[in-house]
Design a protein around this nucleic acid. Structure first.
Lengths: 213, 213
DNA sequence: ATAATTCACATACATCTCGTATATAAAATA
DNA sequence: TATTTTATATACGAGATGTATGTGAATTAT
């Protein structure tokens, strides 16, 4: 036990200095994640060298292994970051729509378009599942899926959608959207096939409506 | 130029001996592919050692690099083989259904169930896309997708399905099915979630019907 | 039938990569 | 001011891939 003055003194010092240490550490983490996003997107996970990665931001693998444990840990951190960005972006797209149903369709279209980004595609859609396993079991819990599932749950509760399993519906919708994006991105003229993909997606999703239009 | 007797003699010899050479070569190829299926499924593509692979069937990497060029080439051959098996299996499942539409649904359900096989999942769904890229650009051209697309085309021509882009619809359906399977397989009780996935798939696919039922 | 040539596969090597074990220097604590 | 943490760097060891070269059997040609 210690008296108040001693504690406050310690707290102050600790507050300052720990902050400084934690600050640079956070900076280094951010640097590494940022560099990893570029390298993983460009070379692919397997071909990305950790030496190149770290030296690109003035560090060595020492920092990497201390912060992320191993190469997989770094990928997990990167995937987590991108996935969060995607989820909030999709949520935003959905919120701008007229009603919840249009919101779901907008979310789907947003996923398709986001997946055209090479960074998203390579890291989240291709290497992510291969290295980290099924998205639903990622550390990040796949925010993308959660957003879709929540929207689906609301639509089922409101009677707009057929009472199917929400998780199943979310997985199917996401799978369809992301797979379609892979196709669009690999096509010779993405501009012309993108609308076809979106149209087909909207038709497909319509199958989940309680009252077909 | 040479006379007939000479040619036939050569053809005979060639027929015999070349056959012997090609035979052992084909056997070795089959051995390697077979071993690779096991190793890739068990360890995953990245962690599978080519030395272990080859020595498991009494060969060395020399045979491997001569036959398949590199590790990727071997994976491509394995994927091709499994994909073909899947396609014919799905086609068979579809053919047993009453009409074309039920056939499409049966194909989808078949894909979902096949994807529960760890070999299919790990090799075709996870490592395949990550290492070889988008399935539509695989050497094998992804027979699975072609089967679905052809079914879709017939359904559109017959007026059963909405006139969406056949390729797009096939991609979406396949993506939904295979993604759902990933979810089912990763779940704690596949037996209970599988029917949910199939039910949701059928509902979703219903969105492509020209006249909703 | 024999000599020459192919070629399928094996062996040896060079390079790269990851992960760990150890070292160090700055920072936090006492 | 001395001591202890700890975030990062350095050094090292264990594979793995791909290539370059060797070799012996199989095939062709004379």
């Amino acid at each position: 036990m210690s008296n108040f003055r001693y504690d406050s003194y310690v707290m102050l010092r600790r507050g300052k200095v720990v902050k400084k240490r934690a600050q640079t550490m956070a900076q280094n983490r951010a640097k590494l994640i940022s560099a990893a996003r570029v390298a993983f997107a460009k070379k692919g996970y397997a071909a990305a060298s950790m030496d190149d990665l770290t030296s690109a931001v003035g560090l060595t693998r020492g920092a990497l292994y201390h912060n992320f444990g191993d190469k997989r840990g770094l990928l997990a951190a990167v995937v987590d970051q991108i996935d969060s960005e995607m989820a909030s972006s999709a949520q935003q797209a959905g919120a701008q729509a007229g009603d919840e149903w249009q919101g779901l369709l907008a979310e789907g279209a947003a996923y398709i378009e986001m997946a055209l980004d090479p960074e998203v595609q390579r890291i989240v859609l291709l290497d992510g599942p291969a290295v980290l396993g099924d998205p639903s079991q990622w550390p990040s819990q796949s925010s993308c899926l959660q957003v879709t599932r929540q929207t689906v749950e609301r639509l089922i509760a409101g009677g707009t959608m057929k009472p199917v399993d929400a998780e199943a519906a979310a997985r199917l919708l996401n799978g369809a959207a992301l797979n379609a994006a892979l196709w669009v991105a690999a096509s010779t003229s993405p501009k012309t096939v993108l609308p076809k993909a979106v149209e087909a997606f909207r038709a497909l999703a319509g199958g989940l409506l309680a009252k077909p239009d």
